[in-house]
């Protein structure tokens, strides 16, 4: 078992003919992901790596029975691509694109609310169920199948923590990169809900960072609804207020919301141990076993 994606997922890649899109499609296929179609307006009828390309997502979904999309469309056109994917409709839409204007995302978010589609991202590395399928740009070789679910706002920090887990023999059910933007589809609470319902996920690692109040909301949710043990990590303890730390969403506001301290305290109150280092997070996970 896993969450969101598995070997049966039928994947359409939006933006498959672009540089990023074609490179990562190759990588996804090599990993074993069942990529069944591409969707690029005006490029229908072509093939990339032997995968048929359609002009519309709806056309691709109909012809190839696709249920999942990965979006590599450039920021100026990404919101339109996401709305198209929501309209198809699909079960899961993973938006890799970084730099989508905030107001575009507010409209997409508004449209996604009330649909049954899981929107992951944008500005995320993707989703992987080790040994089955990967969606996005995650390096497949560092992941190993196991019983720990992982949810993270950051790509490379995910790799770091996964590397620490894997090197100590702890595999993963699914890793979900939820993205570093201020407005994202699936948030910590949504991912925790999925992992809680997955019988094979015996523990969860959540990697948060400064900015917003998603981690605080997750802490409240864990306190009320989650029995699966959770260990946490929060990046940005040394970040000064008012400075955007790389991610558009990683900013401590002038009024003092979004601090690492607030998140660490909230998680602590919910009984979630927070590691001072990535290695220490794995120590906590080991105590769960």
């Amino acid at each position: 078992m896993s969450v969101l994606v598995d070997a049966d997922s039928r994947v359409v890649v939006q933006g498959i003919t672009g540089g990023e899109g074609s490179f990562h499609t190759r990588q996804m296929v090599e990993y074993g992901t069942n990529v069944v179609a591409g969707a690029v307006p005006g490029k229908g009828g072509r093939a990339v790596e032997g995968i048929p390309v359609y002009d519309t997502v709806a056309g691709a979904a109909r012809a190839e029975d696709a249920d999942t999309s990965v979006v590599f469309v450039p920021p100026a056109f990404a919101a339109d691509a996401l709305l198209e994917a929501l309209d198809a409709p699909l079960d899961l839409v993973v938006a890799i694109t970084e730099g989508i204007p905030q107001q575009d995302m507010a409209q997409v978010y508004r449209k996604a609310t009330g649909t049954d589609t899981h929107l992951v991202g944008p500005n995320c590395p993707g989703v992987i169920t080790p040994g089955e399928a990967k969606l996005g740009i995650l390096p497949g070789n560092i992941f190993h199948a196991g019983d720990v679910g992982l949810v993270s706002r950051s790509g490379t920090l995910t790799y770091q923590v996964v590397d620490n887990l894997t090197s100590r023999g702890i595999g993963q059910t699914t890793a979900v990169g939820i993205g570093g933007d201020p407005i994202i589809g699936t948030d910590f609470v949504d991912a925790l809900e999925l992992f809680e319902a997955d019988p094979d996920t015996r523990a969860v690692v959540m990697c948060g960072e400064i900015g917003g109040e998603d981690e605080e909301a997750a802490a409240r949710y864990i306190g009320e609804h989650v029995d699966t043990p959770v260990a946490g990590f929060i990046a940005g303890r040394t970040a000064p207020p008012g400075k955007r730390m790389g991610h558009a969403g990683a900013i401590v506001s002038g009024s003092g919301t979004g601090t690492a301290e607030s998140k660490i305290d909230a998680l602590g109150d919910a009984g979630v141990p927070v590691g001072d280092t990535p290695e220490a997070v794995v120590d906590h996970v080991e105590t769960f076993r």
Binding site: G155, G180, T238
Partner: peptide
């Protein structure tokens, strides 16, 4: 490389 990992590196320097 990557915002989260760079922030973590800063935090560890402090730690």
């Amino acid at each position: 490389n990557g915002a989260g990992l760079v922030m973590t590196t800063l935090d560890l320097v402090d730690y």
